[in-house]
């Protein structure tokens, strides 16, 4: 059961990942209104690694492409280009489908909305046992015992297996979703806003549980959230997304003590200050632009206090953990 944790070993490799959505109006409307086809680059060339046993977080505002990355990482959404390798097996290459099938049970996903992700007509025991049956892991009595064990593990009672999802609160339902994710002894769990729908006290319970389970089983997490404080609490390393691209990748706490990209700085400045330190902040200007028609060059340039002519023309490459001309030219520390 215990995974052997070799901390520096790369477990997930994401390379040049792209996803384009066709967001054109229906064909007839286009013809009548003489509109061209429209495409939206939800994810536009993303690369990062996740080491075995660590938590890698993606943060960014709504529409930055976090969920799209998550769905591609677990194979729920086909990629447009690029690759996702998990433990050396490609999730994107069709030729690999045999080995990929074997890998499936080692990957699970937890969603923001535990209401939507649990079948309301199934008893909890059946929900949790589903991956066990799907992968033919155990039979008969053993399944019941395992389900009871999993329920206990996430802080519920084995008898709760007889109940239906609607009989539980939001936090308890998220516990059920976690139990199901653990049922196939998954090693890599993609968590898309797992606590965003929960109250803070319930969120604390779930985040603590997720950390305990990670320690116990050596789990690797891809953790997605728009909440910077939550991400800081959970992540070993963090990637900041803006309009489908990574703008900065940093070791967890360092992102907060020494943010480098202007967008990261802006995001940090915008977080309401619970500590009431009275810190001076630069007021944020503007909002995320329309992703169908993103700005040229560095897509952050209309909101960036450091933008110059080059920024408007040339998209900055990711160098040494940050994608910004001003940083690379030494215009900022």
């Amino acid at each position: 059961m215990m995974a052997q944790t070799k901390p520096s070993e790369t477990f997930v490799e994401v390379r040049d990942l792209k996803r384009v959505f066709d967001v054109s109006r229906p064909w007839l409307n286009r013809v009548i209104e003489r509109q061209p086809k429209a495409f939206l680059k939800a994810v536009d060339g993303l690369s990062f690694d996740i080491r075995r046993g660590e938590t890698f977080a993606l943060v960014g505002e709504s529409g930055s492409g976090k969920s799209t990355v998550a769905r591609m990482a677990v194979g729920l959404l086909p990629v447009t280009a690029g690759s996702v390798l998990i433990d050396g097996v490609s999730m994107t290459d069709v030729k690999d489908s045999q080995t990929r099938q074997q890998l499936r049970k080692r990957i699970q996903m937890i969603f923001q909305d535990p209401y939507a992700s649990l079948n309301p007509r199934w008893r909890v025991e059946r929900i949790i046992a589903e991956p066990i049956h799907a992968f033919g892991l155990l039979k008969g009595e053993q399944v019941t015992a395992r389900v009871g064990e999993l329920l206990t593990l996430v802080g519920l009672h084995p008898d709760d297996g007889r109940k239906y999802p609607h009989e539980f609160s939001g936090g308890q339902r998220q516990r059920i979703a976690i139990a199901r994710a653990l049922a196939s002894s998954a090693e890599f769990i993609v968590c898309d806003e797992p606590t965003s729908a929960l109250d803070v006290s319930v969120q604390a319970q779930i985040l603590n549980l997720m950390r305990d389970l990670q320690k116990e089983f050596g789990l690797t997490y891809l953790f997605i959230s728009h909440n910077l404080a939550v991400v800081r609490h959970m992540a070993d390393r963090i990637g900041v997304m803006y309009l489908g691209r990574l703008v900065e990748i940093s070791e967890g706490k360092r992102l907060f003590s020494a943010p480098r990209h202007p967008y990261t700085r802006m995001l940090l400045d915008a977080v309401p200050d619970l500590g009431m330190t009275g810190r001076q902040r630069q007021m944020v200007a503007g909002e995320i632009p329309n992703p169908i028609n993103p700005p040229s060059g560095c897509t952050f340039h209309p909101r960036c206090p450091l933008a110059n002519e080059r920024c408007k023309r040339e998209p900055p490459a990711m160098l040494d953990g940050v994608a910004c001309h001003a940083v690379q030219e030494g215009r900022v520390s």
């Binding site: 006290s201 604390a204 404080a229 800081r232 200050d273 619970l274």
Partner: peptide, 23 residues
Amino acid sequence: KGLMGAIPTLEAEADRLVQIPGS
């Protein structure tokens, strides 16, 4: 008190969040 301790912040060093049992 529990509510404040349960909130992750940009400053805290705590490894675990304060947990209020139950709901």
